[in-house]
Design a protein around this nucleic acid. Structure first.
Lengths: 204, 204
DNA sequence: TTGCTGAAGAATTTATAAATCATTCAAGAG
DNA sequence: CTCTTGAATGATTTATAAATTCTTCAGCAA
């Protein structure tokens, strides 16, 4: 690891501790700098802005989550089981993370507004794993053939949006969210099943 | 119409004009009262609070929308067509309403926070029509049998949540929303189709 | 009695000045 | 030259006081 990377990591860790403890907006660049024993101005040689520190943090969080997604998607299990596991994992992980550290919600909200592209990239990465599950399901003979599995994955994400940032989109408790997620997934899986028939004509 | 109802309506109309023009929070009870040629205190003999005026307004808006929903649900058309029409109507109506009158979003947001029950009631009403479409589809032979059509309707609503308050839940433009709505509906309709198979076991 | 007003109070919002903050950069240190 | 600092700056936030606003209700009018 280069000297540069090392300092970046040090800043990132100091910022994470502050952000998680006091929140993004209540943390100042001077405080982070002091924790790293440097001046505030110097941070800007490693990060273009405070927001970029937050984005890098979230990036790391997502990268870790993607490892779990990958593990789930490539398991030696029926595609349907992996499908359930994938989205339930996502719900439980996000819900508990936000419950334990309400500050995460602040950062997520700020990134949603200021860096809309950020989430799209993560969704795109997630679709890689979804496509894997869809294609395996087809090979298993439980899913039908899709014109474009990536588009199908997009639609699945769209239908399950509500469960991605549970506390932001609804006031529902975890139990109710689990109940609804189960129901929606069952409906979607039915829609993916070999016998399912999409309507012949397009509407729009 | 009784004298009471007449005054209520007058207040409601004056409030609607103000709310739509200046927004909910920028409208004062005195202004509404002045428009009705009465004192602010007197409004409280007809509405318990300012928020209740907003709720009554939204109630009326929903009631009008429900008439359209009913018309769509009871049309002499294949269930699948009605299904599409139902949700596309909802998207187009809400999207354009909010675009034309951004102030609606303010009221919707306030009600979402302060009167969470309000939206649940509207959703419950909407499900009556969805169940009608589902049951007709079963009779037509295009939908499979559901244990509890009302629960299925709940899951459909949950999966299509994103398209209900488009501007609140996403930054997407109408074109993109239409594209996604079409895709999600097609997936859901496939899941409702006679050949579709739900997974045998429950997950949670 | 019944319907209404306008004053009064508590809560919220606004206005504004002071303070703090994110960010830049000239200049010093190594 | 590379790395760092700390002062400068414009934007944002905070603090606080003043003004509004929602809501209640005693009392007036019909």
């Amino acid at each position: 690891m280069s000297e540069q990377d090392c300092t970046r990591t040090k800043i990132l860790e100091a910022a994470r501790d502050r952000f998680m403890h006091y929140g993004y907006s209540k943390t100042t660049m001077s405080e982070v700098a002091r924790d790293c024993e440097m001046s505030a101005g110097n941070i800007y040689r490693f990060f273009a802005s405070k927001l970029d520190i937050a984005e890098a943090m979230a990036q790391k969080f997502n990268a870790e989550q993607d490892i779990d997604y990958e593990r789930i998607a490539f398991q030696a299990k029926p595609a349907i089981e992996r499908f359930f596991e994938f989205f339930f994992f996502s719900l439980e992980k996000t819900y508990t993370a936000i419950e334990e550290e309400a500050k995460i919600l602040e950062i997520a909200e700020i990134l949603r507004i200021e860096r809309p592209e950020f989430f799209n990239e993560h969704l795109a990465q997630e679709r890689v794993f979804l496509v894997k599950i869809l294609e395996d399901g087809f090979v298993e003979g439980v899913f039908r053939k899709f014109d474009d599995p990536n588009v199908t994955a997009e639609m699945l994400q769209s239908a399950l949006m509500k469960f991605r940032f549970p506390q932001a989109y609804s006031q529902l408790k975890l139990d109710q969210l689990r109940y609804e997620l189960e129901g929606v997934i069952r409906l979607l899986l039915a829609g993916l099943s070999v016998g399912a028939k999409e309507p012949a004509l397009a509407y729009a």
